[in-house]
């Protein structure tokens, strides 16, 4: 792996991975990946299908734990704390490292209850008005408040695809996480809805450390400041997004982003 520029060094990383391997049963999905995720940055993971970028993302909040036979070795730290340590409570971890999925997956509940779900299970709101406040803030941050404020009691599944995905983002940020992981959040959306999500990511930058996996290189180029290129389970190149897209150092990266990938 090559750091493309000296000024890439992230002085205050939110999350740090050191020599991470992920196995699914016998198969090794991730091979010796080390990476720093900056606090105020949007970090994009790109790479061809099956390169392990989603697998790696899911190991950052231990969602791989839910997959039978998955095993993670190496060290992943959140603020210097090993997230795979026995003392780490996975429930707490996921409250700090939220996740948004590929397909919008609102619960079959009202819009309000969708957003209030996390704060309720974590007991963040002592009373109804506090909860109202949290819901409004999350929906506002997700750019959805104006569209849904008059119909909070309607089912979340009745919204359009793009609205559903923003609802899912609101749901994730309602518990005030430190990191938001996004696993191809726009792959099921049309270009307009995609643009709104990208604008939202831009707005959220600085409030949360954001890591986004995307198939769409243009999207990585548009929303991120750091880009990591994964190939066959390894991290091939990690650097400033501008460098990766104008002047990648690795032949494999160049071939992938210029469309010469086998």
């Amino acid at each position: 792996m090559i750091m493309t520029q000296e000024d890439l060094t992230i002085t205050d990383p939110k999350m740090t991975a050191k020599g991470v391997n992920v196995f699914y049963g016998e198969k090794q999905a991730i091979n010796d990946v080390s990476i720093d995720v900056g606090t105020d940055l949007v970090t994009a993971f790109i790479g061809p299908s099956g390169c392990g970028k989603s697998t790696f993302l899911r190991s950052l909040n231990r969602m791989n734990d839910t997959v039978a036979g998955a095993k993670v070795t190496g060290r992943i730290e959140l603020d210097g704390e090993d997230i795979y340590a026995p003392s780490m409570d996975v429930v707490q971890l996921r409250a700090r490292v939220g996740m948004v999925f590929q397909k919008p997956n609102p619960f079959p509940k009202s819009i309000y209850d969708n957003v209030a779900y996390g704060p309720r299970i974590h007991g963040l709101a002592p009373n109804k008005s506090d909860l109202d406040g949290i819901v409004e803030k999350a929906l506002t941050r997700a750019g959805l408040w104006d569209e849904v404020k008059d119909r909070l009691a309607e089912s979340g599944t009745a919204l359009s695809g793009g609205q559903q995905q923003r609802l899912c983002i609101a749901r994730a940020i309602a518990v005030d996480p430190e990191v938001v992981l996004m696993d191809e959040p726009c792959s099921a959306l049309d270009p307009i809805a995609t643009a709104k999500i990208e604008e939202l990511i831009h707005e959220l930058r600085g409030k949360f450390a954001i890591v986004i996996v995307t198939h769409n290189m243009q999207q990585a180029a548009r929303v991120s400041q750091r880009t990591a290129f994964f190939h066959l389970g390894t991290l091939v190149e990690y650097g400033k997004t501008t460098d990766i897209f104008t002047n990648p150092k690795q032949e494999r990266t160049k071939d992938y982003i210029t469309g010469r990938y086998g």
């Binding site: 290189m217 897209f245 104008t246 002047n247 990266t253 160049k254 210029t258 469309g259």
Partner: peptide
């Protein structure tokens, strides 16, 4: 939408 050396 050329990238990298293509864009250059």
């Amino acid at each position: 939408a050329p990238m990298a050396d293509d864009l250059r």
